[in-house]
């Protein structure tokens, strides 16, 4: 039932993009998102398209894999596109009975759709080429300065990686408890909203109990392995910038400057 859901998927491959430091990829993704939301004109569109597909090519992740991620948001894209298309006021282009499609509408709708698609594809390049653990390590180290103002950066990163480890376990557990209650005649499908919510009690109570039991066990197991928090810990995989990271930073910054230049020239 629920086992078909895949979360935090990673596509293993041996590529330059995979080998980059997660911090480099976080920075690159951030600049890419900014560029996607600030580009203008066909030339700008050409630049970001070239850049994105270039990166996808380098990552050795098949394009079909990327497109799969888009399927989930098709409906959202259609709604957002339609709203922009029909509701933007401006110079009428086509008038069909009461529906008016304006020139601005077409422009906004296509811009919007392109931005959403590129946003999803751009970020999935990062998630597909970086393991969840590298990602949390990258976030932890990038946000390290915040711990000076008492933000528990290490603890947050630790929580994230533990959550990632336990999501599949809890999904499986949900599946099991659901089946067990269905075997006792529980009904999770029929009835109105309130009845449905009430019917969830036999699922949610055992699930919470189990989650707390697991949390308790895990805390004990971590303590038994001498865990005391971030201080005094060493890293098995410390993040160190390599030459290729310097190169990647340069490429990303040059790319960003070009997008800005193209925008200001037009």
């Amino acid at each position: 039932m629920l086992r078909d859901i895949t979360l935090g998927q990673y596509y293993p491959a041996d590529s330059v993009i995979h080998k980059l430091d997660p911090r480099t990829k976080l920075f690159g993704t951030l600049l890419f998102i900014i560029s996607v939301f600030s580009f203008d004109g066909l030339l700008g569109f050409g630049v970001i398209t070239l850049f994105m597909f270039g990166i996808i090519y380098l990552s050795k992740v098949p394009l079909s894999f990327m497109v799969r991620g888009l399927r989930a948001i098709v409906i959202l894209l259609l709604i957002a596109g339609a709203l922009n298309l029909f509701l933007t006021p401006g110079q009428p282009l086509i008038t069909l009975w009461k529906i008016v499609i304006t020139k601005e509408g077409v422009r906004n709708a296509s811009l919007m759709t392109v931005r959403m698609i590129y946003l999803i594809m751009g970020t999935s390049v990062m998630t597909l080429t970086t393991t969840p653990n590298q990602l949390t390590d990258g976030l932890e180290k990038s946000l390290r300065p915040l711990s000076k103002i008492h933000v528990p950066v290490h603890e947050i990163a630790m929580m994230m990686s533990i959550a990632l480890r336990f999501i599949p376990i809890l999904i499986e557990e949900t599946d099991k408890i659901m089946k067990a209650q269905m075997a006792r005649g529980a009904d999770f499908e029929s009835g109105g909203l309130i009845k449905k919510a009430k019917n969830m009690v036999p699922l949610l109570v055992p699930l919470f109990v189990s989650a707390f039991r697991r949390a308790n066990d895990l805390a004990l197991a971590m303590e038994a392995r001498c865990y005391v928090g971030g201080d005094g810990r060493t890293k098995m995989k410390p993040l160190v910038y390599e030459k290729r990271d310097v190169g990647a930073y340069a490429v990303v910054i040059v790319y960003f400057v070009i997008v800005v230049l193209v925008k200001s020239l037009l």
């Binding site: 067990a180 075997a183 005649g185 009904d187 189990s210």
Partner: peptide, 26 residues
Amino acid sequence: GMVFQYPEHQLFEETVFADVCFGPKN
């Protein structure tokens, strides 16, 4: 009737008695 592995993980009611009643009620 089906008793799953570790069936105690499916208990949810406030009392044992109420939990046993869950099946017959359904």
